[in-house]
Design a protein around this nucleic acid. Structure first.
Length: 497
RNA sequence: GCCCCUGUCGUCUAGAGGCCUAGGACGCCACCCUUUCAAGGUGGAGAUCACGGGUUCGAAUCCCGUCGGGGGUACCA
């Protein structure tokens, strides 16, 4: 039987990084085994689900390369075992619930929320675990029918049988849980007829022929409920694999409050899709080797559930940034340009750079920045001088740490004619080749008894407005003669007071 | 509270009884490179393998207990 796995996000919030990781593991498992990867939207909680969140999730999956083989995609549904949105499956849930009721696996419960609350409070006061008393089990089915016909509101509860339930988990091995600890018979249909998660998830997994349920460890404790429902339905049990949780720095379950969890935020910061995939794959799983920088196809080849870690894994942002740098450095210039494009466009729009950036300009800058940016967004601050005139650094910034104002002024005045002589418009960068301008300026520094580094810093700040920039001489060449001289003149004027 | 999972450097991890005086990576420190910032290179600090008992000629690896951490426990997903 071929492998069928699913990721079942709930559109009650922005696409969460933990959901991305679970999706990735499912995708890797499916690809590894030539199976099908399904995306199902769990929007039974109408009050909290929105289509905006759904779009964010589907767009995020697609961007990561984790779009569905079958199920819900950004532009519609594919597959013949749908619908794949729970909100469109209510008739099916009602039907299966009726079946469970007819076979005696479920019964109507007339307890009011207030009564249940009172029961819960009483048990809590008695220091007993919260648990439904199952008291409506004893309501005579005929009476129940009569009361419902009379309009009395009732939820449908699934009857939890006695005895142990065994989970044969692919990550954790055999886990046995006593059904008596499950909290009593569980509601599968609210009084208004709407279905609840523990019920829908099983109906869907059966209908969609899911063979392997790969999800977060937070679902492990609830898995017996699912197994019992599978069994009541007479369905074949899927295999289960519970992944370790992604943790905040304090080792609690990763949350919006304590960590950056929205995938869109990582994307907006300039993390590469490849880096995120690589990083997430290695959070809770390892190749068993010492290789770390791995593309998707390599991950697929090596993926196995045996090397999935059992303990939770702290999300280490520094490691992610390092990996991102690795991936940025691997990109071909044209590819990097394409990734950088939206960042320069946004910067032009919100004024962080003075004008829109042309492709040729970004391409010319790429050799200077590719080795030094950890994030795509870092390119902007590193190259804004190129697109923005009149950075106008103040006297304090213009003056190198070891120098005074008079020395800085003298140095800029002395260097100006040399630069005017060496730089034209539209010059190509020299990169690591020997730059004649550098030699001339070093000689100048020597005759004045200046440190070359101080001279270069003074020029750097005058020309770019920043103390940390790409290599100075190539930066000036790209800027062009007129712009560089104008900025040096402006700096000289400011230094003169 | 009850149930379940879990415990190797700060972090991600390798490790499936002798290959471990525990390896790699991120981060940190130093040095090299160097016009700044990075990148890169080299080296270093950093883990009594949570702790205590066993089993064994031999345990990070097997067993038991303790402690720590996490998750679950809804007419949420």
């Amino acid at each position: 039987m071929s492998v069928r796995v699913r990721i079942a996000p709930s559109p009650t919030g922005p696409f969460h990084i933990g959901t991305a990781r679970t999706a990735l593991f499912n995708m890797l498992f499916a690809r590894r085994h030539g199976g099908t990867y399904i995306v199902r939207v769990e929007d039974t909680d109408v009050a909290r689900s929105t289509s905006a969140f759904e779009s964010d999730i589907l767009a995020g999956l697609r961007w990561l390369g984790l779009g569905a083989d079958e199920g819900v995609q950004l532009d519609g549904e594919v597959g013949d075992r749908g619908p794949y949105r729970q909100s469109q499956r209510t008739a099916r849930y009602t039907e299966i619930a009726a079946q469970l009721h007819a076979q005696g696996s479920a019964y109507y419960c007339f307890c009011t929320p207030a009564e249940l609350e009172a029961e819960r409070t009483a048990r809590e006061a008695a220091k007993l675990p919260p648990r439904y008393s199952n008291r409506c089990r004893s309501v005579d089915p005929n009476d129940a029918a009569t009361r419902r016909a009379a309009g009395e509101s009732a939820a449908l509860r699934f009857r939890i049988p006695d005895g142990p339930v065994v989970i044969d988990d692919l990550v954790r091995g055999r886990v046995e849980i006593d059904a008596a600890t499950l909290g009593g018979d569980l509601v599968i249909l609210r009084a208004d007829g709407s279905p609840l998660y523990h019920f829908t998830v099983v109906v869907d997994d059966v209908d969609m022929g899911i063979t392997h349920v790969i999800r977060g460890e937070d679902h492990l404790s609830n898995t017996p409920k699912h197994i019992l429902i599978f069994q009541a339905l007479g369905a074949t049990l899927p295999r289960f694999a519970h992944l370790p949780l992604i943790l905040n720095a304090d080792r609690t379950k990763m949350s919006k409050r304590k960590s950056q969890t929205a995938l869109a935020d990582y994307r907006a910061e300039g993390f590469l899709q490849e880096a995120l995939i690589n990083f997430l794959a290695l959070l809770g799983w390892s190749t068993g080797s010492e290789d770390e920088v791995l593309p998707m196809d390599e991950l697929v080849q090596r993926f196995d559930l045996d090397h999935v870690q059992k303990a939770g894994a702290v999300f280490d942002r520094q490691r992610l940034e390092w990996l991102n740098g690795q991936w940025i450095r691997k990109l071909a210039p044209a590819d990097l340009l394409a990734r950088l494009r939206p960042f320069y466009d946004d910067a032009a729009t919100d004024g962080r750079i003075g004008r829109p950036a042309r492709d040729e300009e970004i391409l010319a800058l790429i050799p200077l920045i590719q080795e030094r940016i950890p994030l795509l967004s870092s390119a902007i601050t590193l190259t804004d001088f190129f697109f923005t005139d009149g950075a106008a650094p103040d006297v304090a910034t213009l003056t190198p740490k070891r120098w005074d104002v008079a020395t800085t002024l003298a140095a800029l005045e002395a260097a100006r004619p040399i630069i005017a002589d060496a730089i034209g418009e539209g010059d190509a960068v020299l990169l690591h080749a020997d730059d004649p301008l550098e030699g001339t300026l070093r000689a100048l520094a020597e005759t004045h008894g200046w440190k070359a580094g101080d001279l270069f810093m003074a020029l750097r700040v005058a020309a770019t407005g920043r103390t940390a920039t790409p290599p100075l001489f190539d930066s000036m060449r790209l800027l062009g003669r007129a712009a560089v001289l104008a900025r040096i003149d402006a700096a000289i004027a400011r230094l003169r007071g």
